[in-house]
Design a protein around this nucleic acid. Structure first.
Lengths: 199, 199
DNA sequence: GGTTATGTAAACAGATCAGTTTACTTTTTT
DNA sequence: AAAAAAGTAAACTGATCTGTTTACATAACC
């Protein structure tokens, strides 16, 4: 097993452990789960918090492209893809996996305590907002930035409500609202002409 | 200071500490902050987790009536009161106090680990949903249960987005969506008659 | 005034945790 | 095959944490 593969192995196991059991999980659990000694763990990562920061970064780099690919596979049109973003996330909860956003959890846990983890979490959240905005723009909505902000509130609300209630139902509610928002203010160039003031 | 007052004193200090710094704050901090010895703390509460469960219960018993009173003071009509629920919560964030819901945090922290804390958190969340539903019903909306579910997703989404981004802006987004939801499907008896199928 | 409850302060037990170091073994490279 | 790198296992440091106990002080109560 190469150096990169071993580091990846640690990242994979540590990610699952922290995601499932929270950030207060001990490094001993990571060692046991990965099947390595403490010395090796600390050879690859100088500290537990640096490891967590790299986990968030790894989450961002991998999940965003994966999410985009899956959404684009599920639906051909922008509105459908926007809804599909919720569908993909909802599917995890429906499987009985009631985990929130790894980056949001990290941000809340290390807020005002670890700038590196905070920065990685903010980067992940920015990328997620960027992905959401891409699809919002493509819908031809007259105010894509407002729509993006709305979709993000709905997405976060669905995730946290699903997590707390251990039910996927809030996603159906969120998708219902999103569909209403997509149909109520007319898309640009359909009837009303207000391109001039749309950023 | 009477027994009840002393217990209340511990609850007040412990609540602020856990709310500000998370549930992993040590009992030593509570002792120092309240100005009591460890023996006294453990005379009033058999364990830290029982204390936390009582904090959530205390939060429920006090915050819900307080919230109702404040909202009813802020607006005379149901729709205004529904919006005011968001306003009251938003005001805290605008003051620079970026704390989520104490009960939701407790639920996420002790999920599948402490049934007592989980139960107290669920009771709080049920009461909050009940309060939200009261105002939703009074708006005369044709489907108050759906409206309640929608308002809860929006509320949770605004809180967590505000908490993560350290900005009160998500509340404006949430309120905008809520206003749209309140005006789009006609309130019962205004033009459309669909009371028969509204649960 | 004497008894009892209630408090403080501090030591202590027992566990856990992050991180280091030592001694030894395995693998890789040259 | 020799040397160097990378690994394991485990002891250890030093800190932190929940919860208990001991010794002593104070306040209330009869």
């Amino acid at each position: 097993m190469s150096k990169m593969q071993k580091k990846q192995d640690i990242i994979d196991h540590a990610f699952e452990l922290f995601y499932d059991q929270g950030f207060n999980t001990g490094v001993d659990a990571i060692m046991a789960d990965t099947g390595i000694s403490k010395r090796t763990l600390y050879k690859y990562f100088p500290s537990k918090e640096v490891l967590i920061a790299e986990l968030v970064e790894h989450y961002r780099v991998n999940v965003i492209p994966l999410l985009r690919a899956e959404v684009e596979r599920l639906s051909p049109d922008p509105k459908g893809r926007l809804i599909a973003l919720f569908d993909v996330r909802q599917a995890k909860f429906a499987e009985g996996c009631f985990r929130g956003c790894f980056a949001v959890s990290a941000k809340l846990e290390y807020a005002c305590r670890n700038p590196q983890i905070e920065a990685a979490s903010e980067a992940m959240m920015a990328d997620m907002t960027g992905l959401m905005r891409e699809f919002c723009v493509l819908t031809g909505h007259s105010d894509p930035d407002t729509l993006t902000a709305q979709a993000m509130v709905l997405f976060n609300g669905a995730v946290v409500a699903a997590q707390a209630s251990r039910s996927a139902a809030p996603f159906d509610t969120a998708k219902g609202i999103l569909r209403a928002l997509l149909s109520f203010p007319r898309p640009r160039g359909e009837r009303v002409a207000e391109q001039s003031e749309a950023g």
